[in-house]
C-alpha cells in the first residue's frame, strides 16, 4: 500500500523480509528451473521447420522475435505459421514447412518489412540471397532421375533454375548405355524456398529442404585445396614430382 509516507507505514522487520524474500526466490527459482529446462528443449527447431527469409541465426532469432505474427499476416501465400505450445517450434515464433506451403520468394519481402524488431533482418537486400535452408537430394534411391527417368520437376520449379539446382549427367551403370540427369543443389545459390520439396512427385519427397546447419558440412579450417593454392601461387607449390622407386609384389 502506498499511502502517504507520513501515515504510519507498515514496517517490515528484517526477519519478515528475509522470510518473504527467500520464499519468493525459492518459489520462482523452482518455476524458473523448470522453464529453463523446457526452453532448452524447445530451442532445437525441428528439421522440417524453416524460418522466414532473412531470419537471424536460430539463437539470435529466439532472442529477437516478439511472436507478434506480423510477418505471418504480411505473407500473401499463407506460407508462414506461428508455432503453438508443445509443438516442435518455439512457442509463437514464425516458421514454414516447405512440404505444406513453400516460400514464393516475393521480391519485396513483405515478411521482412513487417518485422518490427529485426528478427527478420533488414540486412537481406535481395530475396535471391535468402538462406532459409538448403535443399538436399536426400534419397538417391527413390529419386526418379536416379532411376534414369527425366522427371526433372525439382529442377524446373526452382526459382533459380540452373543456378541453385543443375542437372549433372552421370553414366547409367544399370543399362550401361544411358545417362542419368542427377538434380544437384548448389549451396551458394539455394535459398531454401522449398519449391523443389513441395513439387517432388514421390509419396515422400526425395529432395528436402533442411536447416543449413544440418545440411552443410564444414571443412577443417586448416584444409587447403591444392589446385586453388596452385592457382593463387601461380605455379606448383612443390618443386618437382618425387620419383619414388616402384616396389611391386614379389620383387625386392
Amino acid at each position: 500500500m502506498t499511502a502517504d509516507k507520513t501515515h504510519t507505514p507498515r514496517k517490515t522487520t528484517r526477519r519478515q523480509f528475509i522470510t518473504e524474500a527467500s520464499r519468493g526466490v525459492c518459489g520462482t527459482g523452482l518455476l524458473g528451473l523448470g522453464l529453463a529446462g523446457y526452453s532448452k528443449q524447445s530451442q532445437s527447431l525441428a528439421a522440417q521447420c524453416l524460418r522466414p527469409p532473412g531470419a537471424l541465426t536460430e539463437e539470435d532469432f529466439l532472442a529477437a522475435c516478439v511472436r507478434c505474427g506480423l510477418c505471418v499476416e504480411a505473407c500473401p501465400y499463407d506460407t508462414l505459421k506461428l508455432g503453438k505450445i508443445f509443438e516442435p517450434v518455439t512457442t509463437g515464433t514464425p516458421y514454414f514447412d516447405a512440404n505444406v506451403i513453400p516460400c514464393e520468394m516475393c521480391e519485396d519481402i513483405p515478411c521482412q518489412t513487417a518485422c518490427p524488431t529485426g528478427a527478420i533482418s533488414p540486412e537481406l537486400e535481395s530475396i535471391n540471397d535468402a538462406k532459409m535452408g538448403l535443399a538436399v537430394l536426400i534419397d538417391r534411391e527413390t529419386c526418379l532421375n536416379t532411376q534414369g527417368l527425366r522427371c526433372d520437376i525439382c529442377h524446373r520449379v526452382c526459382p533459380l533454375i540452373d543456378e541453385a539446382i543443375t542437372l549433372e549427367i552421370e553414366r547409367n551403370s544399370r543399362t550401361g548405355h544411358h545417362a542419368m540427369f542427377i538434380p544437384t543443389v548448389h549451396s551458394d545459390k539455394c535459398t531454401g524456398c522449398g519449391k523443389c520439396e513441395h513439387a517432388c512427385p514421390l509419396e515422400e519427397a526425395a529432395i528436402k529442404v533442411l536447416p543449413r546447419e544440418i545440411a552443410k558440412g564444414e571443412l577443417g579450417h586448416h584444409y587447403r585445396w591444392g589446385w586453388i593454392e596452385k592457382d593463387k601461387a601461380g605455379g606448383s607449390l612443390i618443386d618437382e614430382v618425387l620419383d619414388l622407386p616402384d616396389r611391386l609384389p614379389g620383387t625386392k
Binding site: S39, S42, L62, G69, V72, K84, I85, G92
Partner: peptide, 27 residues
C-alpha cells in the same frame, strides 16, 4: 542466462491473444 525469452514459452496472456488470431493448438 539462457539467451531466449523463456517466459514467453508459456506466457498465457500472449499465448491466449496469439492463439485466438493465429491458432491455439494445445494452448
Amino acid at each position: 542466462v539462457l539467451g531466449t525469452m523463456a517466459w514467453e514459452l508459456i506466457n498465457p496472456v500472449s499465448l491466449f491473444h496469439r492463439g485466438v488470431i493465429f491458432g491455439m493448438g494445445l494452448g
